[in-house]
Amino acid sequence: MTTSAAELRPDRVPDGILRDLPKICLHDHLDGALRPATVVELADAAGHRLPVTDPAGLGRWMRRSAGSGSLVRYLETFEHTVAVLQTPEALVRCAREYVEDLVADGVVHAEVRWAPEQHTRGGLSMVEAVEAVRLGLSEGVLAAEDAGHLVSVTQILCAMRHGDRSLEVARLVVADRDRGVVAFDLAGPEDGFPPARHREALELLADELVPVTLHAGEAAGITSIRDALATGRALRLGHGVRIAEDIDIDQEDGVAVVDLGRTAGWVRDRGIALEICPTSNLQTGAVAAWGTSPDRHPVDMLYRTGFNVTVSPDNRLMSGTTVTGELSLLVEHFGYGLEDLERLQRNAASAAFLPLEDRDVLDELITEGFEGLGA
């Protein structure tokens, strides 16, 4: 006996159903998405010392370290994943496995981001590193198609906020924008490293009409978000969850009255997508002002007040999660039903850095997937 969409209660959407639904992932770091077993194998080949050498134990160590409540400590876990991704073979393998894991999670489109400047220690150029990732993604997509799964994956290239190679990265994005690279990002320590440090790169991207999504509103607040919008001309906000600091909600005669500050109003009214990653936000302390449990995360408040909310895993390895896992949190803690989950996927489809025709195709896939549930 099958279960129809109409029969599913909002607070009882099974994980199996969630995995089968077509999903879109907009905020996912390649160097945070490695399988523990792959890290162990690559570390052994590279002679890199890991804190734990069995895959299960390494996974636990990553999640424990990432869950310290500090973004700085969270970022330290990447020392190990970046260290094992310094050869073309390693980058190809991890990109291919990344696509395999997307397919297993029911993802039909993903925009994977990573910082090529961090993968040149072994002699690779950034151009060679990007080509290796492109090859791995292509192998994964073709293998998925042969197995009957439709998935598309593009790259977002990051420059490190505390580094000095953003102009090089921006030029690489421009050069490869017709070869699967769709946007630019600034990643790394947010507080103290504003987009203004990378003004030349950001102006080049604006002149070339290349999309930008910037990490903002994670480790820093409204000022960082305003800077991402004004200086970076960001079309999406990486995390952006601290936009909630610019929102006041009062109760008047039992009715919630929402008052948006200027920055929050700008973001909501223009539909600027928030790339929210609930588990990661809890781990890094990005939402500590609202609480430390999933039910205190402001994602639901932002969704209910009309923000263009999208949901992604950020770093699958460090957070021990997937897109399905993040949606499951919303089902469990906020009672989201299929209508809510479908809206989140449509939000992501409309915000994807793809031509309109391709976004329309994604929207059709979402419609078919949700309408066909239980058929």
Rank of each mutant, 00 (worst) to 15 (best):
L157P: 01
A83E: 02
H119W: 02
G57L: 12
V127M: 04
D101Q: 12
D164F: 11
G106N: 09
E117V: 04
S70L: 12
E168W: 12
E79G: 06
V127E: 00
W61G: 07
V153P: 03
L85M: 15
E89L: 12
H119N: 03
E139Q: 15
G136Y: 04
G122K: 09
V99N: 06
H162K: 13
E168K: 12
C94G: 04
R171N: 12
A143P: 11
V127D: 06
G67E: 07
A144M: 14
A175W: 03
V84D: 01
G180D: 04
E76S: 14
Q118V: 11
T87M: 05
A143W: 12
L58H: 04
R161N: 07
A147V: 13
V92H: 01
V103M: 10
V99D: 05
G67N: 10
Q86R: 01
A83R: 06
W61C: 08
A104P: 13
L142S: 12
A159N: 00
L172K: 02
L102M: 09
M126S: 02
L75S: 04
A115T: 05
E168P: 12
D176K: 10
G57A: 15
S125G: 15
A159S: 06
E79N: 07
A95S: 13
Y74C: 08
D164Y: 13
G67Q: 10
E89T: 13
L102C: 11
L172Y: 04
G106M: 12
D176L: 13
A104L: 15
L91Q: 02
V99F: 11
R64V: 06
R179F: 08
T81Q: 00
R165A: 07
R63S: 10
E131L: 09
G140L: 04
G123W: 06
V92I: 13
V133Y: 00
